[in-house]
Amino acid sequence: MSSFEPRIVAFLCNWCSYAGADLAGTSRIKYPPNVRTIRVMCSGRINPMFIVNALQEGADGVLISGCHPGDCHYSKGNYYARRRYQVMKNILEYIGIHPDRVRMSWVSAGEGQKFADVINEVIEGIKALGPAEEIRRR
């Protein structure tokens, strides 16, 4: 079990979290390579279907990260994302997926270190849960 390296899909909003991840890179801050990022323009773009799909396709965990409340580039997108996330957690539990596999965080464009910290935290959490076999297709 200790050799288990989870695969994590991170949906990052273009303006805050993706820029934060970029800053982590330009600042030479290290974080494990378990996370693969998908850039969307806003966390409000993230359809709950994407999350289920990522878990079906083989991800062990999903991270949604957007701008801090009040900082959304499109003024309301991160609030939509937060509401969907809350509803999503109940649905995940209902379909037999541990709700902690899906995490949400706020990382601003200036928080390169926080991005790395969040990634480490998510990986820790997913490692504790083990591989997601529940709804995997293959």
């Binding site: 969307v40 323009m41 806003c42 409000g44 773009r45 359809n47 499109y74 309301k76 997108g77 939509y80």
Partner: peptide, 9 residues
């Protein structure tokens, strides 16, 4: 402005 909130909804 291309946020995509509508697509998700």
């Amino acid at each position: 402005k291309g946020c995509g909130s509508c697509s998700a909804a």
